[in-house]
Amino acid sequence: MSRDDVLVSAEWVEKNADSDGVVLVEVDEDTTAFDGGHIAGAIKLDWKKDLQDQVRRDFVNKEQFEKLLSERGVSNEDTVILYGGNNNWFAAYAYWYFKLYGHDAVKLLDGGRKKWELDGRPLSTDPADRKATTYSANEPNTAIRAFRDEVVDAIGTKNLVDVRSPDEFSGKLLAPAHLPQEVAQRGGHIPGAINVPWSKAANEDGTFRKDTELAELYKEAGLDDSKETIAYCRIGERSSHTWFVLHELLGDESVKNYDGSWTEYGSLVGVPIELGDGSKA
């Protein structure tokens, strides 16, 4: 897998956005950014409303995903180019999600919305004109999704990469004040996890760092490449960014994203929790 298979540049998007078989998709938590201006031709996906079940805590299922993409005009043959705000967190989450349901022709716009804006590239408020399709998804590929029991079993045997900020990792912070509904019951991290904040994998313009720098980053942090790896954060979006780096850019096929993340783990009864910066671990 090379970088060109999974990432496109802003220049590429400007040249190819109108091509048949290319669909631009902006993925945000708050879609007001999209509504105020987006890359011409892009459709939007709402991270929470479109990609999560509105009753149970889980993804939309296969049938719901098929219905969503059919309505938005995405076909199985299309190459899906994802981008978004927050340094592509939610776009990376959607990337992982498309892969989960078996859509292989999916790429991220390197740098996302931030790089596009900082470059001064044009934005449009025109709605996309796409005809409905009949999209067919695969059964979810759980080789890239970790569940709670697997995470508990991974303590002491697999690499656990906590990609939250150091203060969340140490247990000083539980949750950001504007999202009280996602508060875990306890602070801290999974015992033995290493802390590599997602931001270390990105340049300040939102693009990914070079492969050689990324490989060095995780090696220095103590990632053991002879072991399988699970990445987690708070709600699974920042860890999708790191899953993308490890699985797609660095080619480690063993990496899973634990989307339950700290909001699940930190609320489980009886599981071990470690506090502090991990230096004694």
Partner: peptide
């Protein structure tokens, strides 16, 4: 304890 309001979770508030 006060959390940085963004960067730790998801969408930035207005």
């Amino acid at each position: 304890m006060s959390a940085p309001l963004t960067g730790d979770g998801c969408g930035a508030p207005v």
